[in-house]
Amino acid sequence: MGGKVTCTLGEVKNRADFIVYWGGNPAECHPRHFTKYTLMQKSKFLPRGRKDRTVVLVDIRETKSAKAADHFLQVRPGKDFELLTILRALIKDQKVSEEQVAETGLSLEVLKDLIEKMKAAKFGVMFFGMGLSMTRGKHMNAAALLTLAAEMNAFTKFVAMPMRGHGNVTGADVIMRWQTGYPFGISLNRGYPRYNPGEFSTVDVLVRGDTDCAFIIGADPGATMPKPAIDHLAKVPTIVLDPHVTHTSRLSRVHITTAPAGIAAPGTGYRMDEVPMPLKPALQSPYPSDEEVVRRIRETIALRPDWMTNQPQMIEAQI
């Protein structure tokens, strides 16, 4: 079994002589990733910077990021899982058939060359983007890549990291984990946290029509979610907190304008490698912060009678 073998971005800057980007386009989506953290930095261990590093891009099309890479491997759409699994077999010298390789759109020769380079690296890193984790196979793809990176440690130092987008989504993950045990997809309706992505994840909840009031903050599902989900948001009372009047605001019952995080509201944000950063606002907003508004809503709710009474303090085991 694999796991998650990762590091902070400074380790990549200091040590990674072999860098793979898989299913991501950092040149356009994380523009400073190359210059600040990965390709261009010089370090004690890699004094020549870019010249000391080998960069591979794996994607279904040749994006702008390909220009920055030494090698571009074009995988056939939807075949990431197969390709990763073949690589896992190849590093262990297991047999893989020509047909299986051909299915991925790549040749055995290219893959063997890749494996050789991976094993020759002193410190390898694989970054993966939504092109891997949000396409056919989804979390199975991510798990396959994480496992490949873990298994590479039998040969050399290797790590992997998701290219998280969306500002402080990492902070939400981290906080929900320490407060509820789970990163997302949580139900608190029994008075304690339960986790079941697919059941408690938002798109599924909305499409099934399983919520009768939605509170949306720091996101605009009205612009991004499938239509049946958006239709349900429009049907139930929806409350939006956002610095702008968004698509979701327009279908909501209540919109509250708030100060933009990090620009006019102070606090903390987590980087994709879970390093917390202080946010220093440059502007003073005429609007309150999200923090203040949510606190006030919570305090207003707390004034009402508690709907959940006569519960035990604790249950010994969950059913």
Binding site: H166, G167, N168, V169, G171, A172, V174, I175, T202, A214, F215, I216, I217, G218, A219, P221, L241, P260, A261, G262, A265, P266, G267, T268, G269, Y270, P276, L279, S289, D290, E291
Partner: peptide, 8 residues
Amino acid sequence: YGMSNTTC
């Protein structure tokens, strides 16, 4: 739901 573009 959401919690991306906001502070911890």
